[in-house]
Amino acid sequence: MQVPILKQGTYLIAVVQPDLSDRDLVDLRDALVERVGRHRSTGVIIDVTALDVMDSFASLTLSNLASMIRLRGARTVIVGIQPEIAFTMARLGLTLKGVTTALDLEEGLAYLGQSDPRSS
């Protein structure tokens, strides 16, 4: 399953679908890293609103993704974690430490725009 990745200015926005498999996550990670390099993007937003399960593998892959994207000079924000998912992650001890999270797409864009020299 392909996760759609949209380009908005210097940002990339990936909208995750439900029923995401482990392979889909790894493919997404690789695709985003590649595109950030290709487009010289400054920010990546991953919208997980539709994600019904965030388990240890998903959490790890997203953390790795953020690290790899940072190495390419861009920032990552994960948005749209549902309350039930946040609760579950906290119970499992998955904190997505070091990864920026925001409520939704709007907040994610606001965050990226804040310290983006291009936006001021």
Binding site: D52, V53, D55, S56, E84, I85, F87, T88, R91
Partner: peptide, 15 residues
């Protein structure tokens, strides 16, 4: 919330 807990547990066990 409980559904999320259950499906996540299943995901971990299956993996």
């Amino acid at each position: 919330t409980e559904l999320a807990l259950i499906t996540t547990a299943i995901s971990e066990l299956a993996r």
